[in-house]
């Protein structure tokens, strides 16, 4: 299982990175390989590459704003949620995505 995520919030200095950290932690705990791209005030970091997209089973977009390059995920199952939800309940979000993929 390989999950890619994008996090983004209006100011792009705190929520974005807290959500990324918590998703990463939850992924590690659940034994799932996870890569998180942050679209913060300084721009895109840890960008999801073409190779990542080929490998990926699903996508989580945790954002309160419109993210850049959303169309690259067109062919993958995508779960969208608010950025604060990814901070408070990252495991729940990942579980929900996995259930969604299995369906």
């Amino acid at each position: 299982m390989y999950i890619v995520c994008v996090t983004s919030c209006p100011t792009g200095i705190a929520h974005t990175f807290m959500a990324a950290a918590n998703l990463k932690k939850a992924g590690n705990k659940m034994g799932i390989e996870i890569k998180i791209e942050t679209q913060g005030a300084g721009g895109t970091e840890n960008k999801i590459t073409e190779d990542d997209l080929k490998k990926a089973d699903g996508v989580i977009i945790a954002s309160d704003v419109s993210i850049n390059d959303a169309e690259r995920f067109d062919k993958l199952p995508v779960l969208e949620c608010g950025v604060s939800e990814a901070i408070s309940d990252p495991e729940g979000i990942i579980k929900e995505l996995i259930e969604g993929i299995d369906k």
Partner: peptide
């Protein structure tokens, strides 16, 4: 996008879309 319908979540309505648009605009003018 193959969107996963979230349980109990309302569909992405116009209001939700407007809120997202407004926050996007604000994030760029900060």
């Amino acid at each position: 996008m193959a969107k996963i319908q979230r349980q109990g979540a309302k569909k992405q309505g116009t209001l939700e879309q407007m809120k997202k648009g407004l926050l996007t605009g604000i994030s760029y003018i900060i």
